[in-house]
């Protein structure tokens, strides 16, 4: 269940299909990526996707962070959802990598999430969000 969503558009109701199923029949608009899947396989189809769900079976498995950035760097504008073992203290990094909705397996405290997202005013490095890296602030 989507607990946190940082988008203005409507929630996609269509259930997501696996990457293999999508590449086979390809009229779906929602896809689910497992950690082993290559996010780049979706790049030719990004225009017609409204939801890409990235699975985090274990929070320690950080492959989904790269998948998210790759999709955003390729111009994907639709909903990018982190699903699974998503914890409070991962959400800020996930936001920076381009995730804009979260479906954690275990419900999260909204205040704790808000604090986690609000904790840092700046970031040292550029990523998939709109944060201006500190080096750029220093040099205008």
């Amino acid at each position: 269940m989507v607990e946190f969503r940082y988008r203005a558009d409507e929630v996609t109701e269509q259930p997501s299909v696996t990457l293999d199923a999508f590449l086979d029949q390809s009229n779906a608009t929602a896809v689910r990526l497992e950690p082993d899947d290559d996010a780049r396989a979706l790049i030719p189809f990004l225009d017609r996707l409204t939801l890409i769900e990235v699975a985090f079976p274990k929070y320690r498995d950080g492959r989904g962070y790269s998948a998210a950035r790759i999709l955003r760097e390729a111009g994907y504008q639709g909903e990018l959802r982190a699903q699974g073992d998503v914890l409070v203290d991962q959400i800020a990094f996930m936001r920076r990598c381009g995730f804009d909705s979260f479906a954690p397996e275990s419900s999260l405290n909204p205040d704790a999430v808000a604090r986690a997202l609000d904790n840092y005013d700046h970031a040292y490095q550029g990523a998939a969000d709109s944060v201006v890296p500190i080096w750029k602030l220093r040099h205008g």
Partner: peptide, 14 residues
């Protein structure tokens, strides 16, 4: 040091 500090993509490496 600065680039790697709180790197959002590389904080859950293998």
């Amino acid at each position: 040091r600065q680039w790697s500090t709180f790197h959002p993509e590389f904080s859950y490496l293998p």
